[in-house]
Design a protein around this nucleic acid. Structure first.
Lengths: 220, 220
DNA sequence: AGATATTTTTAGATAAGTCTAAATATTTAT
DNA sequence: ATAAATATTTAGACTTATCTAAAAATATCT
């Protein structure tokens, strides 16, 4: 049985390899997890012994199938719990991440499947991330970062890349949430700023720290 | 911040001292927690240093107010989660204990209070145990063990003392659950057996291993 | 009260997970 | 292609939570 720390490392490696079996460096993991590189090396050796990752000294680490499976399951749990917190307990989307970080490590397949059913098998969580089904499958949506959209593009917010309270509250204050319609009026050179209209109403200037974290789906 | 192990020790001490500030022995704790006495001594020293318990070498341990408060809070969480699992996720009462043992250690006051509200502030959990409110108060019901009832007594099942799957499934097979009416027809000497009628229908012989674990409330 | 039994504590070990500091390997830049 | 910079690993230490075996304290029994 995996420990919480082991699950968190697998989750981080999965995140850094974008879900694929890409090689990830020790430093990238230590950055992501806010630990020291030496700790990462230790843990990776343990995970390699248990067969969850393929590891070559100085060459980085790659998830094995069992590692991918575990990471996806933790992600499924995290996102289902976030959905529960928002849908059933009236939490706002900026409050749920740290609580779900704890809940995602509860061990019970029956629990997570019943929770899934209780929530009516949601496909996406409150931040727009896809929720893997019990068999580990999930669909990546047709989405594009706001920062990569052209002038005159119109789309709907379907996800965010960062889940920090600060960022999500900023989005709240400028009235951006999942489902918000965004039209790009202009792209400025100044700090890669983008002038947009929100829900056909408010005109606002967004800089790259926002536009690089907002996913849009093209409007039909 | 308390670790899971520390919370579990406080919970065990609370249970053994029947909620009161009674002194508990090292061995009693090691029995309850299925660890060795030496481990208990270690942990108790740590809890004493942090102020949760009063400890005198060779004389046992007693919860301080902060220890009682912590234990009650863990109990509140355990019982609310059990209620959630049964009421909302359709678990049966014999499945929820081990899952709640995990969930009771999730740290978030807001979570537990919102869960309480979502469940509509239940007073008792699926095993009939009282659920402490947010301020730590809870009511002990007027209840008596079946084994201590006289002949001709009639009462309603309001709680069970043991939460193991085996025991609860046994109660299921003999059609005893919370709310079941029980009338005592006779008390036999043989293994302290008791002859009862269940819900005015089924006559059955219960031995002490059952009667010492079933709480009844007198019928009016 | 003294011998024996029981309980509790101490001492030393182990595993997980982390750290710092130093050593080593790899990459980059001239 | 070699020196400098960067990345990674090793070595050794610490904390938490556990264990076993031995020592010490307390309780029990005649």
């Amino acid at each position: 049985m995996l420990t919480i720390a082991e699950e968190n490392y697998l989750k981080a490696i999965f995140k850094l390899s974008n879900g694929e079996a890409k090689t990830v460096s020790t430093n990238a993991i230590s950055d992501e997890m806010e630990t020291r590189a030496a700790s990462v090396t230790d843990m990776i050796r343990r995970l390699a012994e248990k067969g969850y990752v393929a590891y070559e000294k100085y060459r980085g680490v790659k998830l094995n199938p069992s590692g991918v499976q575990t990471a996806v399951k933790v992600l499924r749990k995290h996102r289902l719990w976030e959905s529960f917190l928002v849908e059933k307990l009236q939490f706002s989307w900026d409050e749920v991440h740290p609580i779900a970080e704890q809940l995602e490590h509860i061990k019970s397949d029956e629990l997570i499947d019943k929770l899934d059913a209780f929530l009516n098998y949601p496909k996406f969580d409150p931040h727009g991330d896809p929720i893997p089904s019990a068999d580990g499958k999930y669909t990546l949506r047709n989405q594009i970062l706001l920062s990569q959209c052209e002038k005159e593009f119109t789309g709907t917010v379907v996800g965010v890349k960062e889940h920090s309270k600060a960022f999500l509250q900023y989005l709240d204050t400028i009235k951006i949430s999942l489902g918000t319609k965004i039209h790009i009026m202009d792209k400025l050179d100044y700090y890669e700023s983008v002038k947009v209209i929100i829900d056909d109403k408010t005109e606002i200037l967004l800089n790259s720290s926002a536009t690089s974290k907002i996913f849009l789906k093209p409007n039909s």
